[in-house]
Design a protein around this nucleic acid. Structure first.
Lengths: 340, 340
DNA sequence: CTGTTAGCGCCTTCAG
DNA sequence: CTGAAGGCGCTAACAG
């Protein structure tokens, strides 16, 4: 109880206190079966008496396992990455792993490579790379050999790196088809920045749905995920003739579109229907409440950890792509088109 | 160049390869001055030739410094925590530190305590606790002694734990005063959940501004930060007489209020003015664009790391509270009241 | 069931 | 300027 300036207690101190060898202390700490109940009790008492806390760094040095996973992600301020990382962290902690995060504000192959190297030095047991850009995905090609890894939304050419992703094209198809079924002649698209895999997937699904219905695809309007980009696109759209349906590649841009249309005196959904993508918590309360595509980031996070731990703990993985289906959430920003 | 199944190269391997002792290798790795240039070059060549990567775990064991900081945060899916953690991570990495994150979905003193213990075992050099609830802040009282720490928005009674926070009361005062100056008789408030320090601070600032102007404070409407809570509050407000100005404790609730008013046929800002808090990226594109209070989470993050590193590296801290001022951002959801 | 003996890979003395 | 010894706190292997 005396305030001691001394070093933190180590295993040997506990051993002395309990009158056993430090090995026995190690055994009770690691739940080894071969320890007599009363010995265990004595050791545990000594541990609490001394306020002993084990040193995971020392353990990691000898076991060559840090029980830490690295996560490299693009700007975790954005809803998608934030949710994914959150899901990963929850799943990892449940499995008894720490999570060390590197959040990149600008992402290119070099940045990602550096981040992975950095984490590798730290001794992480594996990494999950949330790198939705094509350029970033390339960094995976040069992953340190032997490092277990999993990519989120990444398109790697290395077949030993599993990928967990949401079916972007399917989500876009859902959105577009919904609009078409409502009787709209065609659907305009405000897409994400080029180089993003999600942009490509959503463009592809949108085009596919249009093609299936035998409709021509209008020129997509370029965006960058921001509400402002959606706003600009919305102004263009409001100025055009014959636009009755718009599919924005994310909810934030949809918000911008909504805003621009409202400013332009265009009523949604009476004159133009709008669909977003992501289902951020706000979208249910947009004016009008947004029809959108929900992505389940939690299951993505869980899958990542599952796939990664399989590589780490079973030393063999499930390779290939694990695709999570998205879901259409219909609200009030869509209504029958002029065809109905 | 032969694909070797052998273990990763260690310092001794590099030493042999370069024809020096492993000690010299350590010196070049740590930028010691006392190494001849050509020796250094030889070692560096050997390092790249072998693809050697240093083992930070081993280094941490002997130096008793992991260069890892722990972050305990409430739900990092929310904009505020996400932005703060992002700021912390950027600042930490710039300073050469790793960040290990624990994101709690439900936060109480036990959870926070467990999270800190968990991080302490891992050997973090310090922790920053983003615990905006009163109950969570209490967990700081029982912080392992000797562990450098800093609290964000926390109200600790321990004077050896510095706090970095945004001046919530000042932000609320700014918002309320703005409305009052616009000629509104009084201002209604949709507050956050009880137990949150931010809720308290904003309530306090709102009451203070009202008191300064000699106006009575209406009963606040209880919320929980969600758009839905704002929506419910908005419906009540729309049904009441004489309401001309509302201050919502965050932007998401302000969005809900906006939605409810719009549904109720109440025009904003003509009939009712609305102010939020946070300035999330979306709020500029709400209908109408939201007047709100901006919090600079980046500087909060930077301050945290600064204060924490001072404790770690200089072994003495700047204690007390570091208060970051918020800023009012006026947009179109506020207009002169009936008094004008 | 428990104790002893060796390191894990690195940095910190101290010699040369 | 460089090398040799010693040990950080723990677990693994082997004795007893």
């Amino acid at each position: 109880m005396t305030a001691s300036k001394r070093r933190l207690p180590v295993m040997a101190d506990v051993a002395k206190e309990a009158g056993v060898s430090h090995q026995t202390v190690s055994r009770v700490l690691n739940d080894h079966p071969n320890v007599r109940a009363d010995t265990r009790a004595r050791v545990e008492a000594a541990i609490t008496r001394l306020g002993y806390r084990r040193n995971l760094v020392a353990r990691a040095l000898v076991t060559k396992r840090s029980r830490t996973l690295g996560v490299v992600s693009f700007d975790t301020t954005l809803y998608g990455p934030a949710s994914t990382v959150y899901g990963i962290e929850q799943a990892a902690r449940t499995a008894g792993y720490f999570v060390s995060i590197v959040s990149l504000k600008s992402i290119d192959a070099d940045n990602v490579r550096d981040a992975i190297d950095y984490l590798a030095e730290q001794g992480v047991d594996g990494v999950v790379v949330v790198a939705p850009q094509r350029s970033a995905a390339q960094a995976l090609e040069s992953l340190p050999s032997g490092m277990p890894a999993v990519a989120v939304e990444g398109g790697s050419h290395r077949d030993d790196i599993p990928v967990v992703c949401i079916d972007q094209a399917e989500g876009a198809r859902l959105a577009t088809r919904h609009l078409l079924e409502l009787g709209h002649e065609t659907v305009w698209h405000v897409c994400g920045p080029s180089d993003w895999l999600e942009t490509e997937g959503r463009l592809e699904g949108w085009r596919a749905a249009l093609a299936e219905a035998g409709r021509p695809a209008p020129e997509p309007l370029a965006g960058d995920w921001s509400p402002r980009a959606g706003y600009e696109a919305g102004r263009s759209l409001a100025a055009m003739d014959g636009v009755t349906a718009v599919f924005a590649a994310n909810d934030q841009m949809a918000l911008g579109v909504l805003r621009a249309l409202s400013e332009g005196g265009v009523r949604v959904p009476e004159q133009i229907s709008v669909v977003g993508f992501d289902d951020i918590p706000e979208s249910e309360f947009f004016s009008p409440p947004l029809t959108t595509v929900r992505q389940d980031f939690d299951v993505v996070g869980r899958h990542c950890i599952e796939v990664l731990l399989r590589q780490i703990e079973a030393a063999r993985g499930v390779y290939g792509r694990l695709v999570v289906p998205p879901r259409l959430v219909v609200r009030s920003s869509t209504a029958p088109g002029p065809g109905r």
